[in-house]
Design a protein around this nucleic acid. Structure first.
Lengths: 195, 195
DNA sequence: TTATTATTAGTATCAGGTACTAATTTTTAG
DNA sequence: CTAAAAATTAGTACCTGATACTAATAATAA
């Protein structure tokens, strides 16, 4: 429930600013009802606080997350691939941010680090399709939100469909992660040979 | 570059439909220029194809990804926690989708499975803050996009700050993953004891 | 050539605003 | 208590990107 009594300008604007972050989809009319002031007041407030109009806010959310979702979930590789010798080695870089971390400690959640490592390992092996079979990993040091993770992968050995890849991740020359992956290359369907 | 010659209705509408998925931020005016037809034609097309207006499209993108980003990156646990005995065991469920998978094969990328397992392991141990130290994992069977992953975690042993947690993930009673995690509980700062 | 289909034109209306002017109310100071 | 300042409200014109609708014109098929 919203406060029933009217707020003064300062308090209202403070609340408004916060509200806009949590619920950016409210019209000026909604807001004017919520704060029990006129629409004009809301508009003055937004003007003073530099808060864009509803449509602008929606668009911001849309554009921001449009990219974000694509870069988190849609991508073939977590982080940015900056060097690649197919079948041999590769390097990727991942800029960590606060939302990859525990809010309490600002320490980056392990699975983000793992994801960078595994996806780099996959990228390095010279195969159309692969799956991870086994991996053996160790987090050596905590990673803080904001740290730049540099991952280096090396193909250690290939035996049949199994590719053994080692990945080391460093932050400022300090190793924070090491992992050994056994990647299994999937055979092309041997079913038939149409066309 | 867009096709220079005018298209017929069928072709134009087909392209329009595709374009709206890739670039949902175009106004009718933009589209009318792109297709070299009048605005009215574009509007008729949208009407026939059931494509909402620009603002609706932006809002869709915004709302969809708003939730998505929150559920991917902002969450403490990957998947949905459905049972928890703190310090003993826990169960989580993760509905996989196409965008967690390789587009070629529709096989879910390993790191999503890992993330579910690791975050469940973290949730299970009875500690304020923890980090993964070591893990040893094996993907036993490929997971297809759409599969529902059921993860069960059990605390196997506790030794000092080290918690040994085993996680098994199944799809329809078939095990697809197993992992052993050693989680390290972080001590509260022993620095001082201010109020 | 005449239907039929597709395209274009034009008007009224809407939501959710901006930008601006002006009046009214509330608060603060002297 | 009262004048000045600050805050709030009112009102108008205008904007964008539409919907909804009517009607005219162009292109294509029978």
């Amino acid at each position: 429930m919203k406060p029933t009594g009217k707020l003064n300008k300062t308090a209202r604007q403070k609340l408004l600013r916060e509200l806009m972050k949590e619920e950016p989809f409210l019209t000026d009319e909604d807001l004017s009802k919520k704060f029990r002031v006129s629409i004009q007041t809301i508009r003055l407030d937004r003007l003073e606080l530099g808060i864009p109009e509803l449509r602008g806010r929606i668009k911001n959310v849309a554009e921001k997350n449009y990219k974000k979702v694509r870069s988190i979930v849609g991508t073939e590789i977590v982080g940015e691939l900056i060097d690649l010798n197919l079948g041999e080695s590769g390097i990727s870089v991942l800029e960590t941010s606060q939302d990859m971390a525990f809010s309490k400690t600002s320490l980056v959640r392990g699975h983000h680090i793992f994801s960078q490592a595994e996806s780099l390992a996959m990228a390095v092996i010279d195969a159309e399709v692969a799956l991870t079979g086994v991996s053996n990993i160790k987090y050596l040091n905590p990673v803080k939100a904001g740290d730049k993770l540099v991952a280096k992968a090396e193909v250690a050995r290939v035996r049949g469909n199994n590719h053994f890849v080692h990945v080391r991740i460093k932050v400022d020359q300090v190793q924070v992660f090491r992992g050994k992956f056994i990647l299994v290359v999937i055979e092309d369907k041997i079913e038939s040979k149409e066309e």
